[in-house]
Design a binder for these strands. Structure first.
Lengths: 342, 342
DNA sequence: ATTAGCACTCGATAGGGGAGAGTGCTAACA
DNA sequence: TGTTAGCACTCTCCCCTATCGAGTGCTAAT
């Protein structure tokens, strides 16, 4: 399905105008605004053709045209050129990332915020699940009578911790010893490989201080459960409010609800995202609640770690800008990850 | 300024009706709904009086009355009886808190979410700053060539961490030794008392491995900076969308913007909140951006720790329910805190 | 193939009545 | 003197209609 040069130009003009103004575009407006060398009447004929082909639609008989989802799709596939962020913007981002940060999650959060601000859509970043990482160190720190803190550090610097109850009689030295045993037994294991069964057999082996070990293992298991899932960071939800398509509360509520329950977002995306930028326009999305929005997303990886990042906005979206920004940020993210996960 | 029994009853009826329906309340409606033994005409007279006194206002000549802010104030001060959550609700909350949780912040988050859900307003919890806490343990865990993880644990189980760069030549044993030295020097100090000067003098004392120590001290300082401020947790922002007063986008945006910048919220509240429930109605608030909303909040404390928690909603708020819920949750929170901060 | 001209369509906007809810006032009543 | 019924009045809400204008589709001329 290929369009001649003129139809492409017209389709592009309509899309860019409509995305900007959110109002149907008329034949006259196109000729004026984009300085085409053809008359409005000619444009009208072409527009009628484009409508027949399904790339445009008319809200009502005597309004201008708006792009259909098929129209956006054609534009995205065959016409669009990704628009990179300005050097200045990228410079700002680099500045942000230059600051020393607590951990990878904090960095990702910052990047997400920046993406949202840059594009004016809502951004999301799916962090890799922890399950592929290895335990480097495990420590038990006494807190006060009857409580200790279990700390686990993974090879990539992720820290997980949880307080556990211990008998008041256990001494600090005891705790250290137990931590040492646990570390010996668990070091180098991926969290995923540490399953209930394995923990059980280990407990038998370390019969001494059964109670503390029990609690510790329980805690480890829980922590693993918590971190076993991918984590989703979302920023810029407020940007939604600027889009006229959300003037109607019902829709807004639906979307915000969706985003609030972060976990659901994962299901919107394919299990494995490639490295290239994906675009899902409106009804192309599986999930009911996001059928009238668009997703622009991609995957990132660096070594073992892989995650996803993307933008969510109205169907009437600046795809060129979203895709361009995403591509640049994807590169930057992989760069930064190298620093955090050697 | 005291009102006779009948006026009070009428004012209360109007407030409860208006809060429920968000529409001006007429004389007839009051008599019918609340089964008063007086006629609509009498009510009208009383209403005219109440309006003269400033407790009611009329949106326009021939509509019903709505409570003025002064009216709400009178109600809150002199008529209202706090309405406690049902036993069932409190039971659910206890169930939630029974689950073992990562740390105090996670608990507070849960409580906040519950508050929001219970009342259908937005909730906030201000966590005590970390500065009053003491360092229990400090550890350096090697991650990989050239990186180590600095871990600080405070007496109440708060874990702060940060990766630092180290020379590749430093061994694990060295790290442990340095951590030990640092711990010795810092143990028992409150974060607030560890100021730049003190860190400097300490560095001289520990001249060996200057570079690592330097990095570690830098990191400690940064971590302290990050945690030196009170932290604000907000939940249930979505609840705002249900209130008809936010049908107009502009206002909604303003409020959400306010809540997004969590830090600002602190400035809305008095420096030190007492233990009783405070209510700030509309214009009683200092901060411009929250002049057409109401705050219901209180302080909590347990030992050294003190923070605030509260609800934010429209002026047309179920104060009785908000205040009652808050009071119950305050008690619960102090209970739970005992467990976390012995 | 392109363009100018023109009739036609349809949403958006403004103005003009009711309809209905609620008030304030007056006069009668206990 | 406080309470009540009755009634005229006010103001919003909603529906109906007329008008306006942007934009189309068609036709005939270039």
């Amino acid at each position: 399905m290929t369009l001649d040069e003129r139809k492409r130009a017209i389709l592009e003009s309509i899309i860019r105008d409509y995305v900007e103004t959110a109002e149907p575009v008329g034949s006259r407006a196109i000729v004026k605004k984009h300085g085409l060398k053809i008359s409005a009447a000619t444009v009208r004929n072409e527009m009628a053709d484009l409508e027949d082909m399904g790339y445009l639609e008319q809200p009502h008989t005597s309004a201008g045209r708006i792009p259909s989802e098929k129209g956006y799709r054609y534009y995205v596939d065959c016409i669009m050129e990704k628009e990179k962020p300005t050097d200045e913007d990228m410079f700002i981002l680099q500045g942000l990332l230059g600051e020393h940060m607590r951990d990878w999650q904090a960095v990702a959060q910052k990047i997400g915020q920046f993406m949202a601000q840059l594009t004016n859509y809502a951004s999301f970043i799916v962090l890799p699940a922890v399950r592929f990482e290895q335990i480097t160190s495990l420590q038990l720190v006494p807190l006060n009578e009857g409580q200790a803190l279990l700390l686990m550090v993974t090879d990539n610097g992720l820290v997980m911790h949880r307080t556990i109850e211990i008998p008041a009689t256990v001494s600090k030295a005891d705790l250290e010893q137990m931590a040492e045993s646990l570390t010996q037994s668990l070091r180098g294991k991926t969290l995923a490989s540490v399953r209930r069964g394995e923990l059980r057999s280990m407990r038998d082996e370390l019969k001494r201080r059964r109670q503390v070990i029990d609690r510790a293992l329980e805690a480890i298991e829980q922590v693993m459960g918590e971190n076993g899932d991918d984590k989703v960071l979302i920023s810029g939800i407020l940007n939604m409010l600027n889009e006229p398509e959300f003037k109607d509360m019902e829709m807004l509520k639906r979307v915000l609800k969706l985003l609030e329950e972060e976990r659901h977002l994962k299901h919107l995306l394919p299990l494995k995202a490639g490295q290239e930028v994906n675009i899902r326009i409106g009804r192309e999305n599986q999930e009911e609640s996001v059928r009238d929005m668009s997703l622009v997303f991609t995957g990132y990886r660096s070594g073992n770690e892989e995650g996803k990042l993307g933008l969510i906005g109205p169907v009437r979206m600046e795809y060129w800008k979203a895709a361009g920004s995403l591509e640049s940020i994807q590169m930057m993210i992989e760069e930064v990850m190298k620093k955090y996960f050697t």
